[in-house]
Simulated scan of single mutants.
Amino acid sequence: MTTTTAGAAPHLGVGAPRRGLASRIADRLGGGVIQVAMVVLGVFWLVPTLGLLVVSLRSVQVNNAEGWWTVFTKPAELTLENYKNLLATGFTASFWNTVLITVPTTILVIGIAAMAAYAFAWMDFPGRDTAFLVVVGLLIVPIQIALIPVAAFYGGIGIFGTIPGVVLFHVAFGLPFAIFLLRNFFVGIPASLLEAARMDGASEWKIFASVVFPLGKPAIASLGIFQFLWVWNDMLVALVFADTGSQPMTKALQSQMRQFGSNIDILSSGAFLSLLIPLVLFFGFQRYFVQGMMAGSVK
C-alpha cells in the first residue's frame, strides 16, 4: 500500500517545459531590440529605391563617373533636368495611358468580383458549387496560352492595340482570383446579419450594398491594392495588346532599354515615377491592407 505525506500533492510528472537558449536570449533582449532590427531591415529594403531616386536626379556624366552614394558629400549635383527631359520625350502620354488602363481595370474587377462573390457565398441557385469550382480552376490557367487567341479575336472585332482591349484582358484574368478571395471573406460574415436584413424586407441588392460591401472593406481594399499593382507593373499584356498610341509606362521604358548606355537619365527618372504611385498607394492604404490579410486569422 502506497502512502503520501499529508498536504503534499502527488508528483504527476507534468511541469513547465524547459526553455531553450534562444527563448531566454529573446526575453533578455526584449521587444525594443527586435523593433530596431526591423527598422534596419526596412532601411536596407529602401536602399535601392533611394539609389534610383539619386540617379534620377543627377546627370549622365556624373552617374557614369561616380556611385550614387557620393551624393551625401556632393548634394549640389542634384538637378531636375532629367525629369524635364523625360517629359519632353512624350512620357506623359504613357503615364496617362497607364492610369487609363489601371484605374478602370481595378474598379471593374472589384465591382464584378464583389457581386459574384456575394452570389457564391449567400445566394442559392442551380449549379452554384459547380460554377465556383470552374472559377477556382481558372486560377491555374496561365495567361500566356490566351495571348494569341485573344489577339486574333481582338483583331476581328477591331479593338487590338487599344486601351479598352488591354483593360478587358486584365479584367478577364483578374476576376478568378478576385472572386475566390472575396467569396472566402464574405462567407465569414455572420448569417444573422443577413437574415435580420431580409426580415426587414431588404432585397438581395440592398443587403449586398448596405451590409456585405461595407463589412468587406478590408478584403476589398487588399484586393484593390493587389489588382492595381499587378496592372500598373504589367508589361507582357502591354507588349502584346498595346500599340504606340496606347502603350503604358512599362512598354515605354522597355523601348528605351535599347539605348541603355546613353539614356540612363530617362530610364532612371521614368522608373522612379512608375514606382512612386504604387508606393503612395500602398502606404496610404496600409491599414486596410493589413486588416484584409488578418481578417481570417482570428474568429
Rank of each mutant, 00 (worst) to 15 (best):
T2C: 03
T3Q: 13
H11A: 14
L12F: 10
A16P: 07
P17C: 05
G20K: 13
L21H: 07
R24I: 06
D27F: 06
G32T: 02
V33S: 11
I34Y: 11
Q35N: 12
Q35H: 11
V36S: 08
M38Y: 11
M38E: 01
M38A: 12
V39R: 09
V43T: 09
F44Y: 15
V47I: 12
P48G: 03
T49S: 12
L50W: 11
G51A: 06
L53F: 14
L53A: 10
V55W: 08
V55L: 12
S59Q: 05
S59D: 07
V62D: 09
N64K: 15
A65N: 10
E66R: 13
W68F: 11
T70G: 06
V71G: 02
V71M: 02
P75L: 04
E77R: 10
N82V: 03
K84D: 10
N85R: 13
L86W: 09
L86Q: 05
A88I: 08
T89M: 07
T89E: 09
F91H: 05
T92Y: 15
A93V: 11
S94V: 07
W96G: 00
L100F: 14
T102P: 03
T102M: 02
T102E: 01
I107F: 15
I110T: 03
I110L: 15
I110S: 06
A116Q: 06
F120R: 02
F120E: 03
F120S: 04
A121L: 02
W122H: 15
M123L: 15
F125A: 03
T130L: 14
V135D: 01
G137I: 08
L138A: 04
L139F: 07
V141H: 02
P142S: 05
P142T: 06
I143C: 01
Q144V: 13
V150C: 06
Y154H: 02
G158R: 09
I159V: 11
T162S: 12
P164M: 11
V166E: 03
F173Y: 12
L175H: 00
L175N: 00
P176H: 01
F177D: 01
L181N: 01
F185P: 02
V187W: 05
G188R: 04
G188K: 06
A191Y: 14
S192W: 14
L193A: 06
A197H: 06
R198E: 13
M199I: 15
M199T: 13
M199E: 08
D200L: 05
I207R: 13
V211H: 06
F213T: 01
P214D: 11
K217R: 13
P218F: 14
A221K: 03
L229C: 03
M235W: 15
L236N: 04
V237D: 00
F241T: 00
P248Y: 06
P248Q: 03
M249L: 12
A252E: 02
Q254D: 09
S255Y: 05
G261M: 12
N263C: 06
N263V: 14
I264Q: 12
I264N: 08
D265E: 11
I266V: 08
L267I: 14
L267M: 13
G270P: 10
A271Y: 13
L275W: 15
I277Q: 07
V280E: 04
V280S: 07
F282C: 04
F282S: 04
G284A: 14
Q286T: 00
R287A: 09
F289M: 01
V290A: 08
Q291V: 03
A295D: 04
K299A: 03
